[in-house]
Write a protein that binds this DNA or RNA. Sequence first.
DNA 1: CGGAGAGTTGAGAATTCTCAAAAACTGTGG
DNA 2: CCACAGTTTTTGAGAATTCTCAACTCTCCG
Lengths: 224, 224
Amino acid sequence: MQLSTIASPVQTPTPWPAAGGSTGGVRLLAAYDSLFREGDETTAFYEVLTGAVRAYKIFPDGRRQIVAFAFAGDIVGFCQGDTYRFDCDALTTTRVRVIHKKSLLHAMRERPELAEKLLDVARGEVETLQDLSLLLCRKTAIERIASFLLTMARKSANPLAERLALPMCRADIADYLGLTIETVSRNMTRLRTLRIIDLPDRGSFQVRSMERLRQLAECDGNTH
Amino acid sequence: MQLSTIASPVQTPTPWPAAGGSTGGVRLLAAYDSLFREGDETTAFYEVLTGAVRAYKIFPDGRRQIVAFAFAGDIVGFCQGDTYRFDCDALTTTRVRVIHKKSLLHAMRERPELAEKLLDVARGEVETLQDLSLLLCRKTAIERIASFLLTMARKSANPLAERLALPMCRADIADYLGLTIETVSRNMTRLRTLRIIDLPDRGSFQVRSMERLRQLAECDGNTH
DNA sequence: CGGAGAGTTGAGAATTCTCAAAAACTGTGG
DNA sequence: CCACAGTTTTTGAGAATTCTCAACTCTCCG
């Protein structure tokens, strides 16, 4: 498999305002390496440089929910209190920039305009979570999967590329969308049968009809 | 019905850092009066002083999701971009303090420590939404309702009071939890039959077994 | 070639939804 | 104070969707 031919999410060129150079160390993670765990002290948060991570919570009875996927350019672990409320680990080989909370707070006092940027980051996180809530409240399985794939496609440089990366496994998608692996699989197949998407191989997909995918995802209800 | 005997959510005594007196006007809303609509320009956000509001989104096909309820002490409309992404209106007679975005941004430049408070507000919003996502991902209807009632109880001054306020109708609860009115009703009855809660009258409830409610809500899985 | 892990497909069970009707509550007017 | 209409909530029965459990396929790797 030629990984290089798979379109990756847009690489934002270091959007993070470096706070005097002292903030950024870079950490390299292999697939499934942990970035932080629920209960850990929140001394830092992270900007994903390359690769992807997942943030999730595991319930006492073993059920799991993935609360967010983060790709190159995204921030993880920002809106947390004194301790993290979730586990976070890498989906693939991943590089993250470490941003220490302390030095950032310090920088914020010096440069008040930085606070506005941070509020923007928080706002982005809120929007993502609102969309997730909408998606989970939305009833049918196929609509959730359509929404998810649409979001993934829109994040990439070329949404109509023949091979868009889908770096997470079916179990991850299921736990993100509040479905089971089997339901995810069945509805992926259904979307392919409807010729809305294609599944060239494990770990990638292609949008064949952006319009119909959008209709399903946004509950337009014209086609069914 | 003696409304005064119903325990209301805790009234936080003006937690908001008034930015030089120029921020706060107060708006009075009757039940179902609109606070803002999706698409409106976000010139201000609001602190609920008394009463309660709901924030929701309506899909093209008519489905609705309530993204948040806000009670006395809560902030609404804070983490929004240039335009609101949701409709917001009052559940009952409600007073809100208007906080103008412009004056707040101005105040933030003068007093950098204010920015940290604002980030805390954003963090609170993120936590609430994460909890909502967890709740929606959680499978069974009875667990969602248990979580919801537990949250409502915990917000009130005396969670074990005989009559806790439930100011929203079943349709609102259903659209918040991603269920139908009928399923909400059935499972409320079931919780009452299990003697976990009591429903003294429309618009209020009582927790009879906080422990069993918590077990259901937090997916402990000991009792079923 | 064989084994492990991931994904797909199938059949029956369980939950929730939909549609329908009954019951309870609210407010109005006599 | 009671009757009535209108609304909300509850309850019931059948339909639809998703889940559970199981078997099978495919790919990757040694």
